[in-house]
Design a binder for these strands. Structure first.
Length: 925
RNA sequence: GGGCGGGUAGCUCAGCUGGCUAGAGCGUCGGCCUUACAAGCCGAAGGUCACAGGUUCGAGGCCUGUUCCGCCUACCA
């Protein structure tokens, strides 16, 4: 235990400095094991798995929001007596991490191919070891109460085992398959396939080129349009609609592919849209998914014109019989990049007079979500997960409410994607990740070789047979021929494959662990909408498939954090706010509070330092309230039995505390984080500090009331510390440590019992009256402020009411008067025959009149007139309502009664104001 | 093209199933160093709730249309 000596109460500094306290308390909590989950602990289970951040990443503000909300939930539930656990961990982040290490290699003049697979992976592990702890340390700075003894990494042995298990089982069930030749999204920079959702569509300015393909019989030409002219090299046909009169005799003929000289057929297919463009469509099965389908229907060949790194190969230089066409003009394009090829093709076509027209064209182009490179449809052998059978139960589980999204609107997004889901390409041509547990036997099936055009960089694949041997563990021999020359599939799995298993793999699955039995399904998933497809939906599919249960009951979707001006934060833009800088500057508590308060907003959260500063001030306010209390309780005995007899003010603040706790409970239960934060903010500042502490000051001077005030100050402060602890754990722990503790309260607020919401039993007229008094004080202050009365100047106060019964105690009650005198700086007038300045009285309240030292009659006239005008407006509105017969008939009785009462009050107030006005005018004239 | 979200005070945003005089923080203005806190205290000003219709006794919340902004999604050459 590194606990340092705590300061004596009187030495608490004026300003709370977070840094020291935060480091101290975090290590105390950790050393005492307060974060640890224990399967055997009593209480209903509550569990959260962290959305694993990239292991080599660093904490950004989105993580800060995400993890703050999780921490608030976990701390709250833990304090409520739940058997709570928050399981942390990190993700290996396949492409992202591999790219980082590749960049490092590049700067050393190396690349991964020269290094070799094994060495490269060692490099990545080394980098992981070096930088992997950083994000965890950052989470700790935020105060995250994760059970670090259960920290997991997606490439841990246990989790890898789960990955292999799932892959092999899915394969056995026919839900994983290998497609020998499939068009996939290919990143020519990362040299890998991507799933559909890893492609970002961006609107770009491009062109639409219209190209003439001369008919073989020289009877004319067919014009096609394309946004990617270089793909024409791989064209195998031109398609027209069978009923298009323009091309009635053309289908069945051949055209000569420009620059290449290949003769390709004109086919008829109703996929072609007659109304679109020229009505003729070039068919490039190797580079367009639709064309791939058309080509398949017509038995056309597939020509892949690109290498894995996006250069032109020579596969397109063949005639329709497959013989080489060495003399073709396009031969000079071999080896050029796709961009170069595009401009050269356009130039050449133009030179040959085959370019009909060029128009500007704005369209969406797919880009790699990791590196931003334009993605190509590319022919290659890949592994897929058949998703339909997995998606159906995932849809059903949300439909029937086993898992609920909050806000529920996100269920639409979830359904929309799952209902239109396409098979998931899970193989990646990377080295960093879970290698696919498929082996190929070199002895048998040697001829069934899967070959990909232009595959120099992936020559290891060429040796593979098309018949993988699947096993969760490495096989020692081929089950067919017993051959031992086995080669593992070189590909790794999509990062999101292992993420999809996270809720159960982290709890020990496939073993039937106690943790799994205790905490699965998990309670709440806290994440943002941008990974509903990537992660949430896939966890649902895999969780249901392999555990038979949903992975989580609630999915809380929070907003995305943006900059003050609404921009997305990104490293390249340099507008990233580093959460750690904020923590350094304002403290983790202020930052957490700000994130909480912002959490319920729509899709975006704009964060600004100003806002955080405001909550820093709140933390300091709380701190100073604690200082005040501590300065005034040195003679208080926390262990004294029973509570002293409380005054109305004491009972009042306790009543308000109960109301605040009720709000907080309702808000947190409904994931309305901002409402919970606001309720506590307002109680602490506007009720406890602004009113109760002020009311307590005179009471502390009064021997008769001192003990009760001390007891109440402490009692409420302790509840405030507990109630706020999930949001601002550090400052509350610091305060708690300085507070005297009665029997039964633990040494640390983190493990204290969360205060139960409560309502008072029965009526308390004295407390009601205090509410009135507070209202009176407000109105006196209002008048004083308006009239510019000097702060020290006492004024005469007159209180009037039709209901003398209500007024009498207020007038006579010594205690109340004292408070009023203190807080409003008034002396009490005996009569009210000419109350000089008045303030409107709301329902049931007394009228407040103040005699100012030298009241200016003209000022008073203006003031009264203004008030009368205001009342007239109100009256008119009431009359309109009450004059409406359907209002009287259909509105709820209480609403009608209330409106009547309100109108009567307004009328009475108006009469009195009018009388005052007449008097002032009279005395004036 | 399809879908979703948003337009409320000068700024950033709350406002849950339609029902008291539409709220908060910041900013602004005026007054206070009142012995917990100037990172504070007291008070004030400021809103035709994007626009136009409609439903309703009653609309910032509901319906229709218009408009502006943002996001997601899509194979339209």
């Amino acid at each position: 235990m590194s606990s340092r000596p705590r300061q004596a109460p009187r030495e608490l500094p004026k300003i709370y400095t977070p840094t020291e306290a935060e480091g101290h308390w975090y290590s105390v909590w950790e050393e005492r094991g307060y974060f640890r989950g224990d399967e055997d602990r009593p209480g209903p289970p509550f569990s959260i798995v962290i959305p694993p951040p990239n292991v080599t990443g660093s904490l950004h503000i989105g993580h800060a929001l995400n993890n703050t909300l999780q921490d608030v939930l976990v701390r709250w539930k833990r304090m409520q007596g739940f058997n709570a656990v928050w399981i942390p961990g990190t993700d290996h982040a396949g492409i992202a991490t591999q790219n980082v290490v590749e960049r490092q290699l590049l700067s050393e003049g190396l690349d991964r191919h020269r290094l070799g697979r094994e060495k490269f992976i060692e490099r990545v592990w080394a980098w992981k070891e070096q930088s992997g702890g950083r994000i965890i340390e950052q989470l700790k700075r935020l105060g995250a109460s994760c059970d670090w003894s259960r920290e997991r990494f997606t490439m841990d042995e246990g989790l890898s085992r789960a990955v292999r298990e799932v892959f092999v089982r899915l394969h056995a069930e026919g839900l994983v398959y290998r497609a020998a030749n499939q068009l996939v999204n290919w990143c020519v920079r990362c040299h890998t396939a991507l799933s559909d959702i890893e492609v970002e569509h961006r609107e770009v300015n491009g062109h639409l080129w219209h190209i003439r393909y001369p008919l073989e019989d020289a009877s004319g030409h067919v014009t096609v349009a394309t946004t990617r002219p270089e793909t024409m090299l791989g064209d195998v046909a031109v398609a027209v609609h069978p009923e298009d009169p323009r091309y009635a005799g053309v289908a069945g003929k051949h055209v000569v592919l420009p620059l290449v000289g290949r003769k390709i057929p004109v086919i008829a297919d109703d996929y072609v849209d007659i109304a679109m463009g020229t009505g003729a469509l070039k068919i490039t099965p190797g580079h367009d998914p639709n064309d791939f389908e058309v080509g398949r229907r017509h038995g056309l060949p597939v020509i892949s014109i690109l290498t894995v790194d996006g250069r032109l190969n020579d596969a397109f230089l063949v005639d329709d019989a497959g013989s080489p066409l060495p003399g073709a003009p396009a031969a000079r394009l071999v080896g050029r990049s796709r961009q170069d090829a595009r401009s050269i093709v356009v130039e050449m076509l133009e030179a040959e007079g085959l370019l009909d027209s060029t128009e500007k064209h704005r369209h969406a182009v797919g880009h790699c979500y990791r590196c931003g490179t334009v993605v190509e449809p590319f022919l290659s052998p890949q592994w897929f997960v058949k998703t339909k059978p997995l998606a159906e139960p995932a849809i059903a589980a949300v439909e029937d409410g086993r898992t609920r999204f909050r806000p529920t609107q996100w269920e639409n997004t979830y359904f929309e994607w799952l209902r239109n889901i396409r098979d998931w390409c899970v193989s990646r041509q990377l080295w960093w990740g879970h290698r696919i547990p498929a082996w190929y036997c070199l002895r048998c099936d040697r001829d069934a070789i899967t070959q990909v055009e232009g595959e120099e960089l992936r020559s290891d694949r060429i040796a593979l047979s098309a018949q993988p041997i699947l096993s969760a563990e490495p096989p020692s021999a081929c089950p067919r021929c017993a051959g031992t020359e086995l080669i593992q599939d070189p590909d790794v799995l999509d990062t999101w494959f292992s993420s999809a298993l996270w809720p159960f793999s982290t709890l020990g699955w496939p073993q039937e662990t106690k943790a799994l039995a205790t905490w699965y399904p998990t309670s709440t998933l806290v994440t943002s909408f941008d990974i509903i497809f990537f992660w949430v939906a896939r966890m649902m599919m895999m969780g249901l498939r392999f555990t038979g249960q949903v992975p989580f009951r609630d999915v809380y979707i929070h907003a995305l954090v943006r900059t003050e001006t609404g921009e997305k934060m990104s490293k390249s833009k340099g507008n990233v706010i580093d959460p750690l800088d904020i923590v350094d500057k304002f403290g983790a508590d202020a930052f957490r509070f700000a994130l909480m308060a912002l959490a319920a907003q729509g899709r975006d959260i704009r964060i600004s330092e100003k806002r955080i500063e405001g909550y820093r001030n709140f933390v300091n306010k709380l701190w100073n309230a604690a200082r005040f209390v501590l300065m005034n309780v040195e003679d208080h005995d926390p262990r004294a039995a029973g509570c002293p007899s409380l005054t109305a003010a004491d009972r009042w603040v306790i009543r308000r505390l109960g109301q605040a706790l009720t709000e907080v409970d309702a808000a947190l239960t409904a994931y309305r984080f901002n409402d919970a934060a606001l309720a506590l903010y307002q109680f602490t500042w506007n009720v406890y500090c602004d009113w109760y502490i002020e009311l307590a000051k005179p009471a502390l001077q009064d021997p008769a009331r001192r003990a009760a005030a001390q007891w109440t100050l402490l009692r409420v402060l302790r509840d405030v510390a507990k109630a706020l602890h999930p949001i601002v754990p550090f400052v509350t722990e610091e305060i708690w440590s300085a507070l005297p503790r009665p029997e039964g309260e633990p040494a640390h607020v983190m493990i204290a019992r969360y205060p139960e919401p409560f309502a008072e039993h029965g009526e308390d007229l004295e407390v009601d009256r205090l509410e009135q008094l507070i209202d009176v004080i407000g109105r006196v202050r209002n008048i004083r402020g308006e009239m510019g009365v000097a702060p020290g100047q006492k004024v005469d106060l007159f209180l009037l009411s039709d209901d003398e019964a209500a007024l009498a105690p207020l007038r006579a009650g010594e205690e109340h008067l004292l408070r009023l005198g203190n807080l409003a700086r008034v002396v009490f007038g005996r009569t009210a025959d000419r109350p000089p300045v008045s303030s409107m009285a709301p329902a049931g309240a007394v009228e407040v009149h103040v005699a100012l030292p030298d009241a200016d009659p003209a000022e008073e006239v203006r003031r009264l007139e203004k008030e009368i005008a205001k009342i007239d407006g109100e009256l008119a509105a009431h009359d309109r309502k009450l004059g409406n017969p359907s209002f009287l008939e259909r509105a709820p009785a209480e609403v009608v009664a209330e409106t009547r009462a309100r109108r009567d009050e307004a009328l009475a107030s108006r009469a009195k104001l009018a009388a005052s006005l007449a008097k002032v005018r009279g005395s004036d004239g």
